[in-house]
Computed example of a mutant assay.
Amino acid sequence: MKKIGMLGGMSWESTAQYYELINRELNRRLGCLHSARIVLNSVDFHDIELLQKAAEWGELADILSEDALSLELAGADFIVICTNTMHKVEPDIAAAVTIPVLHIADATGQVLKTDNIRRVGLLGTAFTMEQDFYKSRLATKFGIDVVIPNAEDRSLIHNVIYDELCKGVINDKSRQGYLKVIDRLHAEGCEGVILGCTEIPLLVNQSHTDIVLYDTTKIHALAAVALALAKE
């Protein structure tokens, strides 16, 4: 079994979900008292969020690259960045280490391709929805047309993530707002919707809608288990 390096804390709420999902899935596959071999480096999200707001992506890349290197030095065989947004600096992180980085958009894109999804909605932070690092990867590598909500809806999605979900606040009014955004994306021809922020599944899941949702936290965690158990 390979050792998984988790670069987490962005936020700790979703990192806790990663830890549980990875261990539950690995135990489901292996049985007995098996659990995952994990080394975790969890950042102080307060500092990360301030740098995000200031668009200090270079400094963020330096911080997370150093933390990723510490995972490699601790014996990790590959790295999982436990957030969608900070995959913006994944190329820098990957360049700083000699072990693989399991990209969340690649894991998600593979599931979308398997499901023959050609047009998909994307919910996430404003950085993930509005910048190109995530959408273009899905388009270029998997041929998927990615649709984002309108400006008002993007503001709602982003603010709920930072003001509520990252603080562990689950608000039914916010859930209803998210579901309306999902309905509008479906009305625009989206065959499914990516929950492209690792906190969103804390608020919205498949039980809340008939529209197909792609939970990137779960997808990424299961891909980590598959890689950890893959034969050399």
Rank of each mutant, 00 (worst) to 15 (best):
P201A: 06
E72A: 11
L33P: 04
E72T: 09
L138G: 09
G121V: 06
D215F: 08
Y162G: 08
C190L: 11
V101L: 04
T198D: 00
E20V: 15
D163C: 04
V43K: 05
A107C: 14
L122T: 07
Q17K: 14
I211Q: 03
A94Y: 00
D215L: 09
D115S: 07
T198A: 06
G58M: 03
T128H: 00
S70R: 15
A107D: 06
D47I: 15
A76G: 07
K218I: 12
L26S: 09
E152S: 14
R119D: 00
N205R: 12
Y178L: 10
H158F: 07
D145Q: 09
R119K: 15
V43T: 14
K180C: 02
C32I: 14
A228I: 11
D67Q: 15
A55L: 10
E13W: 04
I22A: 06
I200D: 06
V80H: 02
I170K: 04
E66R: 15
S42Y: 00
V204M: 01
T98P: 03
V169Q: 02
R24Y: 00
V160M: 01
T125N: 03
Y178Q: 04
N116A: 10
T140W: 02
L71M: 08
S42D: 08
A74M: 14
Y19W: 02
L112K: 02
T216S: 09
N150V: 14
H34Y: 11
G168P: 14
K135D: 10
V111Y: 01
Q52Y: 00
T216K: 04
V225C: 07
V97Y: 00
L229W: 01
A230M: 09
R37K: 15
S207A: 14
K218R: 14
G143Q: 11
A226V: 09
Q52D: 02
G31C: 08
I161V: 07
F133V: 07
I117W: 01
K167D: 06
S136V: 12
E152I: 13
A95H: 06
R119S: 11
W57E: 05
G143A: 12
E72C: 10
V212L: 10
L213A: 03
R175P: 08
I99V: 10
K53L: 13
G196N: 08
A95C: 02
Q110T: 06
L179M: 04
D210G: 13
Y178E: 07
G189M: 08
M129D: 01
I22F: 04
L40W: 05
M10C: 12
E20Q: 14
L222V: 11
A224M: 04
A107K: 08
Y178F: 15
N171K: 06
G124I: 05
E164F: 05
G143L: 09
V80G: 10
I79T: 08
N41T: 09
S174P: 11
L185N: 02
R175N: 01
A228S: 15
L50R: 15
G196F: 00
H208D: 15
E56T: 11
D172K: 12
F127E: 01
I104M: 09
L156W: 00
E164P: 06
T140H: 06
A228L: 09
S65P: 13
D62R: 15
E152Q: 05
L213C: 05
G58P: 10
V193G: 00
G124H: 01
R154P: 05
L213P: 12
